[in-house]
Nucleic acid binder design. Structure first.
Length: 900
RNA sequence: AGGCACGUAGCUCAGGGGGAGAGCGCUACCCUGACACGGUAGAAGUCGAGAGUUCAAAUCUCUCCGUGCCUACCA
């Protein structure tokens, strides 16, 4: 029989596997480069090849998938561009660790072999995260998958580099940069995480030539004093008047260095005298530039003291600190030591303490690029959603500093620059030059540095579309419709895409930037690949199914707040999936043989419940559509949840059961549904049920694609994938306020009766008699017409609708609107219980009435509040007053009976 | 140091000037032919504290307390 169409419980695993393969095989994710349809495009934030799907990815890609599936159903030509990032330092670290296990390192392999090794690694593991995205249901156009180290993307990188260099926006020079001695490379400012550190402030006396006592400087990093080339004081600092130009003898090194004046020095800090180490501090470097000081590097790239450090050569930098202090103590030059908290930079990849380090690096001149990126957001060419991030964006853009793009690692885009061995000429070009442009020499050496990973990511929106070649994809899909990302890469990535997109494409890379929450770990800490505190979403998918997981993420994706995900929550939404499944299972039992022809010849036949559910469905369609357009995923998901569970299942399906089963109620003899004559409304009801389920599935598909497709497949009258179906539109003619109003009355009566049953402990097996008294003829007719519905939903023996009259004895009362409901409790009434119940109810109403009376007796409220508000409050007060009167009558009647 | 959030039911969180909401948990009664991953009913919050604006504040403004994050700097 048809009831076997669906299994009793939803089992996601098989269903998910089956449908994903089907979608891919049918090419349902494919975008068309040329199409009459309106374009909609998203580029995926490329996960690192080393990545394993974490909660952040799961949320990020679920939201993108919802948007893509939604737009596809709306008839857009959707391109969701997938790919992965080569993640320079991260990937190199992973493979280096692998090598270490074999007792090798990259230097023993050599550059070429090492890179080969990384490609091998990528071949084996690089597809892992893609597979995981597929399990989530991501509907990317996989045929277009890109990798930031692809030939095409590499060409884009070289093109951009050469152009920027020609335009003077890329330069090379000796500057202080952040150096990771472990990764052995420069880092951009963004790649350094600052953490507070409990250190010390050391006061060191530097003897001054020809002066008594000398000058005392304060420092947190005494080991750098070995590279000092001056001592600076503020020109207006009276304490050091007359010292300018004098020389001090640098302790331990016995070098003569000058005392200089510089405004930068804060007279209030420490002793007001600042030791200057241009090679190991960014500010000192600037001061050094201003005063033409020599830079003496004493720490090497490996974090050990070099030959300039004299007798400390070869020591680790921290070890050296202790030894320098010891030496100073011995010479009596360490004046005092104070505890001092300051922040220390760490490498975002390996947590090693970063060293400010003077070296030759490549930089992008950021200001000119940033100006355009600021203007574009100011002009509204790109919207940032939620808007609160706009300020942060401007803040950063306005204070942008040049971007250090060179990295001293091997895995990445090698900088396309060559130096002539003969004349030192530097050449930047797309392809290796054969001879020196200056001296015709032929010994050219390529720059060994590679580019910051984010340099290639910055080009992602157009490099993935084939730029600088193959213009068609770009023409159709650039600018992209929206970028979906978390705020933690707003600067790393979004800002830089804006700069590069505007500079090279003359248009913004995306119309909208939707910034979603960050999924944090149990302690509220950011989950990140390098911290290793990630939770595996694959477990969640295995355990609860991808749909339940996706729906949870969507329901929690409120704008502007972080998500601390709990498993209970996911379980709750799994129940929702199961509920939907069973609602479909129930429906299919009754409509699997239906042959809907799509006409609406039944329109006149609609029952109240039909009209009501269709009207409610309309309202959900509208909510889901508007909310998705606003990126309010949680609102859309919650509206669906509410509708499916608490309107469709709780009310509509329950109401139509007697129609479908061909019974008039539980009182009717059970002859087996099939042999009972179907009521006249049977066909109409089936059509409405079919139609509601059909549209509900289409609404749900973007959120829970697998289960929606599975049910869709079983639903009669549907052809092909639900992905090809239209997203539902509001059908204005189905809006039915009257039906909703009448249903409110009926639902009120039903709830009233159920409340009595529940509170009075009437066993569900007992069918009771009910009398409803209402003064209004219209209401009486309505109730009379739907008496079957009330009888069924409340498990009644009988129901009688009358004018207000004599109070039936031995009954409990509830009031809904102006109808008084009497539930007969002959033989089971417990007067004390009923007295308690009534008192509680009256108490609630009284409390509410107090508030209303207070308002209504306030002259200002009556005068100043909008009339409709006043009117509403009045009506409510009247209704509640009436209700309380009726309940009080009942209370005194019951009290008498219990006493007598 | 600046900036941005956030403190709402036991827990996790929505909402956002005129009726305090959800999920999980809890209590009572029910395995009634879709679903016990279920049904019906119920208990539970002076919406962080204080002040202000308003006829009306959980909601807007300010101050404070608490929490988290971001950016910058610190000799």
């Amino acid at each position: 029989m048809s009831s076997h169409l669906l299994k009793k419980g939803y089992e996601p695993e098989e269903v998910e596997k089956h449908w994903y393969a089907y979608w891919e095989k049918e090419g349902l994710f494919s975008a068309e480069d040329v199409s009459d349809k309106k374009p909609f495009s998203i580029v995926i934030p490329p996960p690192n090849v080393t990545g394993v799907l974490h909660m952040g990815h799961a949320l990020n890609n679920t939201l993108q998938d919802i948007l893509c599936r939604y737009r596809r159903m709306q008839g857009y030509n959707v391109l969701w561009m997938p790919g992965t990032d080569h993640a320079g330092i991260a990937t190199q670290n992973v493979v280096e660790r692998e090598l270490a296990k074999e007792g090798k390192d990259r230097h023993s392999l050599g550059r070429e072999e090492f890179i080969e090794r990384i490609w091998e690694w990528r071949k084996e593991y690089g597809g892992r995260i893609i597979k995981q995205l597929k399990r989530l249901g991501a509907s990317c156009d996989w045929d277009r998958e890109r990798f930031t180290m692809d030939e095409g993307l590499s060409k884009a990188v070289r093109t951009v580099f050469v152009k920027l260099h020609e335009q003077g926006l890329i330069y090379r020079g000796d500057y202080i940069i952040n150096w990771c001695p472990r990764c052995h490379t420069a880092l951009s400012d963004l790649e350094v995480d600052h953490e507070d550190h409990n250190g010390h402030l050391y006061y060191v006396r530097y003897p001054v030539e020809g002066e008594e006592g000398g000058v005392v400087v304060a420092t947190t990093r005494p080991e750098t004093m070995l590279g000092d080339t001056a001592v600076a004081v503020n020109p207006s600092d009276d304490r050091y008047l007359g010292l300018e130009g004098k020389m001090v003898i640098l302790p331990l090194m016995n070098r003569r260095i000058p005392i200089i004046l510089d405004e930068y020095v804060d007279a209030r800090f420490g002793t007001g005298a600042l030791k200057i180490t241009p090679a190991h501090d960014p500010h000192d470097f600037e001061i050094g530039e201003r005063h033409n000081l020599e830079s003496v590097k004493v720490i090497g790239g490996d974090g050990f003291m070099n030959e300039q450090a004299g007798r400390f050569q070869g020591k680790d930098r921290f070890e050296c600190r202790e030894e320098v202090l010891e030496a100073l103590r011995e010479e009596g030059l360490l004046e005092k030591t104070e505890p001092y908290q300051h922040s220390v930079g760490h490498c975002y990849r390996c947590r090693t303490t970063v060293e400010p380090y003077l070296s030759k690096q490549w930089f992008v001149k950021a200001k000119p690029l940033a100006e355009k990126a600021i203007a574009a957001v100011e002009a509204g060419d790109t919207r940032i959603i939620p808007d609160t991030w706009t300020k942060t964006y401007f803040e950063w853009m306005n204070n942008i500093r040049d971007w250090c793009i060179s990295r001293q690692i091997w895995w990445g885009h090698r900088i396309p620059a060559w130096t002539c061995k003969d004349c030192d000429e530097l050449m930047v070009a797309m392809d290796p030059p054969s001879v020196c442009s200056a001296c015709n020499g032929s010994t050219l050496v390529q720059e060994t540095d590679v580019l910051d990973t984010w340099f290639s990511s910055a080009l992602w929106p157009f490099s993935t579309m084939g730029w600088p070649d193959g213009p068609q994809t770009v023409k159709t899909f650039y600018p992209t419709s929206v970028l979906v990302t978390a705020f933690d890469i707003l600067f790393f990535w979004v800002a830089r895409m804006m700069m590069m997109g505007l500079h090279f494409m003359n248009d913004v890379p995306f119309r909208d930037v939707y910034i979603h929450a960050l999924v944090r770990d149990a302690e509220g800490k950011k989950m990140s690949k390098s911290k290793g505190n990630v939770i595996d979403p694959l477990y969640v998918i295995d355990e609860y199914g991808a749909d339940a997981f996706r729906f949870t993420l969507a329901a929690l994706a409120a704008q502007g707040r972080d998500i601390k995900l709990s498993e209970d929550r996911i379980e709750g939404y799994r129940h929702f999936i199961n509920k939907l499944w069973n609602a479909a299972r129930f429906s299919l039992m009754h409509i699997s043989d239906l042959e809907p022809d799509g006409s609406r010849k039944d329109a006149q036949d609609l029952s109240l419940a039909d009209r009501w559910i269709l009207s409610r469905l309309n309202s959900v369609v509208e909510t889901v559509t508007t909310r998705l357009d606003e990126y309010k995923f949680n609102d859309a998901a919650n509206a669906l949840y509410q509708f499916v569970w608490h309107e469709l299942c709780d009310w509509y399906l329950e109401i139509i059961k007697p129609v479908l089963y061909g019974q008039s109620g539980p009182g009717a003899p059970d002859q087996g549904a099939s042999r009972v004559q179907k009521p006249a409304r049977y066909e109409t009801t089936r059509l409405v049920l079919w139609s509601v389920l059909n549209r509900t599935l289409r609404l749900l598909h973007p959120f829970i694609p697998f289960v929606a497709e599975e049910i869709w497949d079983k639903l009669p009258g549907t052809e092909g994938s639900i992905m090809r179906a239209d997203f539902p539109c509001v059908a204005k003619d189905r809006d039915d306020r009257e039906a909703e109003e009448v249903m409110r009355l009926l639902m009120g009566v039903v709830s009233g009766i159920r409340n009595i049953r529940g509170e009075m402990n009437v066993p569900p097996s007992l069918f009771v008699d009910v009398i409803v008294q209402c003064p209004d003829k219209g209401d009486r007719d309505l109730l009379e017409q739907r008496r079957d519905m009330i009888v069924n939903l409340c498990r009644l023996q009988s129901i009688e609708v009358t004018k207000p009259g004599k109070r039936p004895a031995l009954s409990a009362t509830s009031v809904s609107r102006n109808c008084t409901i009497f539930v007969s409790l002959k033989g089971i009434i417990d007067f004390e219980l009923e007295v308690g119940r009534l008192k509680k109810e009256i108490g609630k109403i009284t409390k509410e009435l107090e508030g209303i009376d207070k308002k209504l007796s306030n002259e200002d409220f009556l005068q100043k509040a909008p009339q409709e508000v006043v009117q509403k409050v009045r009506e409510k007060g009247e209704n509640l007053g009436e209700k309380r009167r009726k309940l009080e009558d009942q209370l005194s009647a019951v009290s008498q009976m219990s006493n007598g």
